[in-house]
Amino acid sequence: MSELFPRKQVMGFVFSLVLTAAALTVYFMDLSFAVGMTVLLVTAFVQAAVQLVVFMHAGETDDKVAIYMNIYYGVAIALVTIFGTLLILVWDM
Protein backbone atom coordinates (compact mmCIF):
# COMPACT_ATOMS: atom_id res chain seq x y z
CA MET A 1 0.00 0.00 0.00
CA SER A 2 2.70 2.47 0.96
CA GLU A 3 4.28 2.20 -2.47
CA LEU A 4 1.17 3.91 -3.80
CA PHE A 5 1.92 6.99 -1.67
CA PRO A 6 5.39 8.17 -2.67
CA ARG A 7 7.07 10.46 -0.21
CA LYS A 8 7.71 13.18 -2.76
CA GLN A 9 4.07 13.57 -3.73
CA VAL A 10 2.79 13.42 -0.14
CA MET A 11 5.28 16.10 0.84
CA GLY A 12 4.22 18.14 -2.17
CA PHE A 13 0.58 17.93 -1.10
CA VAL A 14 1.37 18.91 2.49
CA PHE A 15 3.48 21.78 1.24
CA SER A 16 0.69 23.04 -1.00
CA LEU A 17 -1.71 23.00 1.98
CA VAL A 18 0.81 24.94 4.02
CA LEU A 19 1.15 27.50 1.25
CA THR A 20 -2.62 27.87 1.07
CA ALA A 21 -2.71 28.46 4.81
CA ALA A 22 0.06 31.03 4.45
CA ALA A 23 -1.91 32.84 1.75
CA LEU A 24 -4.91 32.93 4.04
CA THR A 25 -3.05 35.21 6.45
CA VAL A 26 -3.96 38.11 4.15
CA TYR A 27 -7.60 37.38 4.94
CA PHE A 28 -7.32 36.80 8.66
CA MET A 29 -4.65 39.38 9.47
CA ASP A 30 -4.82 43.08 8.79
CA LEU A 31 -1.92 43.53 6.36
CA SER A 32 -1.13 46.54 4.22
CA PHE A 33 -1.84 46.23 0.49
CA ALA A 34 1.85 45.93 -0.42
CA VAL A 35 2.61 43.24 2.17
CA GLY A 36 -0.57 41.34 1.34
CA MET A 37 0.17 41.36 -2.40
CA THR A 38 3.73 40.21 -1.76
CA VAL A 39 2.45 37.28 0.31
CA LEU A 40 -0.05 36.34 -2.39
CA LEU A 41 2.47 36.64 -5.23
CA VAL A 42 5.03 34.51 -3.41
CA THR A 43 2.60 31.80 -2.28
CA ALA A 44 0.84 31.59 -5.66
CA PHE A 45 3.98 31.29 -7.73
CA VAL A 46 5.65 28.80 -5.36
CA GLN A 47 2.45 26.79 -5.35
CA ALA A 48 2.44 26.76 -9.16
CA ALA A 49 6.08 25.67 -9.21
CA VAL A 50 5.30 22.79 -6.81
CA GLN A 51 2.57 21.55 -9.13
CA LEU A 52 4.81 21.90 -12.14
CA VAL A 53 7.78 20.03 -10.75
CA VAL A 54 6.32 17.54 -8.28
CA PHE A 55 3.06 16.57 -9.94
CA MET A 56 3.45 17.43 -13.61
CA HIS A 57 6.97 15.97 -13.97
CA ALA A 58 7.95 18.88 -16.23
CA GLY A 59 11.63 18.00 -16.19
CA GLU A 60 11.63 14.24 -16.65
CA THR A 61 12.21 13.87 -20.40
CA ASP A 62 14.62 15.10 -23.06
CA ASP A 63 12.03 17.67 -24.00
CA LYS A 64 12.43 19.52 -20.75
CA VAL A 65 14.22 22.42 -22.42
CA ALA A 66 11.33 22.88 -24.82
CA ILE A 67 8.79 22.51 -22.01
CA TYR A 68 10.46 24.97 -19.68
CA MET A 69 11.13 27.42 -22.50
CA ASN A 70 7.47 27.25 -23.44
CA ILE A 71 6.33 27.85 -19.86
CA TYR A 72 8.81 30.66 -19.16
CA TYR A 73 7.99 32.37 -22.42
CA GLY A 74 4.26 32.04 -21.79
CA VAL A 75 4.53 33.36 -18.24
CA ALA A 76 6.77 36.25 -19.35
CA ILE A 77 4.32 37.33 -22.03
CA ALA A 78 1.40 36.82 -19.65
CA LEU A 79 3.01 39.16 -17.13
CA VAL A 80 3.81 41.71 -19.82
CA THR A 81 0.19 41.62 -20.97
CA ILE A 82 -1.26 41.94 -17.48
CA PHE A 83 1.03 44.70 -16.27
CA GLY A 84 1.04 46.47 -19.63
CA THR A 85 -2.75 46.52 -19.61
CA LEU A 86 -2.78 47.88 -16.07
CA LEU A 87 -0.21 50.51 -17.02
CA ILE A 88 -2.30 51.69 -19.93
CA LEU A 89 -5.81 51.43 -18.54
CA VAL A 90 -5.57 51.76 -14.79
CA TRP A 91 -2.38 53.34 -13.57
CA ASP A 92 -2.47 56.19 -16.10
CA MET A 93 1.06 57.52 -16.35
Partner: peptide, 8 residues
Protein backbone atom coordinates in the same frame (compact mmCIF):
# COMPACT_ATOMS: atom_id res chain seq x y z
CA UNK B 1 2.58 21.10 -22.88
CA UNK B 2 2.64 23.58 -25.74
CA UNK B 3 -1.15 23.74 -25.62
CA UNK B 4 -0.86 24.54 -21.90
CA UNK B 5 1.38 27.47 -22.85
CA UNK B 6 -1.53 28.81 -24.89
CA UNK B 7 -3.86 28.20 -21.94
CA UNK B 8 -1.55 30.29 -19.75
Amino acid sequence: WIFLGAEV
